[in-house]
Design a protein around this nucleic acid. Structure first.
Length: 423
RNA sequence: GUGGGCGUAGCUCAACGGCAGAGCACCUGACUGUGGCUCAGGUGGUUGUGGGUUCGAUUCCCAUCGCCCACCCCA
């Protein structure tokens, strides 16, 4: 094999494309109902945008970005996550306008690029369906975003999604907590794993996220952010819980979720599904009240969500959820003998012009071969055209399900075939 | 990035130093103007790639690429 696709990427073939379309259609429809407008941003951005927003010390920025220089010497990076480009576009196009208090709701479906080592459920190019709600600090918005995601999973038939929530505080309380946390584990740092020793200095919050047993035990005893929230954050968190409860949404509080992007404040949440194994996160997000300002805009709060489409498809597969089979559709023109070829080819064109799905056997094989093919390819009708039919200006239309067939004048054919469409 | 497993026909898999096979799929015919069922026949492979060992390598060794699994990280 001369060329292969880059490691960790996938071709989506005609056979599986319908499953993607079904998922995308569902997401778009839900976004329509929740009144989010679509935004499409470039596939690459200035590298600085990701570095500044996601955070220099995050794994994403420090080792997973596809960064390159263009001919003008600018450093560009393939979209490494969905929020920063959306915020950039929000600011650059002044989407909010004069009313700085207004809530702006945006959604996207876009490829994301990260140079991880691939494994099941983890790819170098994956796709996220996401939303960003910019402009309001109320926890009702956080709850809406979570509700939207759960609606999405439910409408795709996915049962058993777990919702985990946490609060990571704000610039008021988080730094104080970080000090408290560092102080509480200070004596044991040298027993922790190498990564955690580094995190202790660079990003202590993520000490809580470590899965190493020793580290877990050490942090077990440490105070949790949730217990150290400032008044405003505590109130926001209980507001979130109230709104979730009002919607009947079940959640677990997991004080250890610390998302791998530095811009999160207050709410952090994640959706998991056990059908997946190691890579069991099927979506996640949180609030980012400082991000817009950090990107050079006014102090505008926001909350967002990203859902991994590949993971959603994998869960559906694991749960045995199948889209309903494609119904038989369209007509296959069966040409009988050489004299029927050209009239058949013309008929094929005419039917297509009239909106009918139609196909023909370019190889001009035997009737038997053409019929077999028409059947195997799920055509609804076979349109037989031979010397007899041509002489009388008709075609024989055979229903491939019932086997019934009748002669139809050529000038009524499109109408007849149209009426045979399913539904 | 680190460790482990696996790459054989379109697909799912055998063969494990000695002529590379099966099932499904596909093609042709039985049925010379009619698909599905049945039957008969047939096409299809540089055994991922490149080296090495050997009289001989799909098989053993090395490298490389890819996939899978775990760590890590995340969607």
């Amino acid at each position: 094999m001369r060329y292969q696709r880059p490691k960790g990427t996938n071709d989506i073939l005609p056979e599986e494309a319908p499953r993607w379309r079904a998922v995308e259609r569902t997401f778009r429809d839900i976004c329509r109902r929740y009144d989010y407008g679509e935004i499409r941003t470039p596939i690459f951005e200035e590298t600085e945008l990701f570095v500044r927003s996601v955070g220099e010390d995050t794994d994403i920025v420090s080792k997973e970005m596809y960064t390159f220089e263009d001919k003008g010497g600018r450093s560009l990076t393939l979209r490494a996550e969905g929020t920063a480009p959306t915020v950039r576009a929000f600011l650059e196009n002044n989407i909010q306008g004069q009313d700085r208090e207004r809530l702006i709701k945006l959604y996207y479906i876009a490829p994301i690029f990260r140079q991880d080592k691939p494994q099941a459920g983890r790819y170098r190019q994956h796709h996220q369906a996401g939303v960003e709600a910019l402009g309001r600090p109320e926890p009702s918005v956080d709850a809406e975003v979570i509700d939207l995601a759960l609606t999405f999973y439910r409408e795709l038939g996915i049962e058993g999604t777990r919702l985990l929530i946490n609060s990571v505080g704000c610039p008021e309380c988080a730094p104080g907590y970080v000090d408290t946390l560092k102080a509480s584990v200070a004596d044991s740092v040298c027993e922790m794993c190498r990564d955690c020793q580094r995190r202790y200095e660079t990003n202590p919050l993520r000490l809580l996220d470590c899965k190493n047993d020793v580290c877990r035990q050490i942090t077990q005893a440490a105070p949790m952010m949730l217990d150290e929230l400032c008044g405003e954050c505590a109130e926001h968190f209980s507001g979130l819980r109230e709104h979730l409860e009002a919607l009947g949404i079940a959640y677990e509080i997991d004080p250890r979720i610390v998302r791998g992007l530095d811009y999160y404040t207050k709410t952090a949440f994640e959706f998991r599904h056990d059908a997946l194994g190691a890579q069991d996160s099927i979506g996640g997000g949180g609030r980012y009240d400082g991000l817009v300002e950090q990107c050079g805009g006014p102090a505008i709060p926001g909350v967002g969500l990203g859902i991994g489409i590949e993971r959603v498809l994998m869960v559906r597969e694991a749960l045995g959820l199948r889209d309903e089979e494609e119904p038989r559709e369209g007509s296959f023109i069966v040409t009988i003998g050489d004299e029927a070829w050209m009239p058949g080819y013309k008929l094929l064109h005419d039917l297509r012009q009239q909106g009918i799905k139609a196909e023909i056997d370019y190889r001009r094989r035997s009737i038997r071969a053409q019929m077999r093919y028409a059947d195997s390819q799920n055509y609804l009708n076979a349109v037989l055209l031979g010397g007899d039919e041509i002489a009388r200006g008709v075609a024989t239309v055979r229903d491939m399900v019932s086997g019934e067939q009748e002669e139809v004048p050529l000038d009524e054919l499109a109408e007849e075939l149209r009426s045979r469409r399913p539904e």
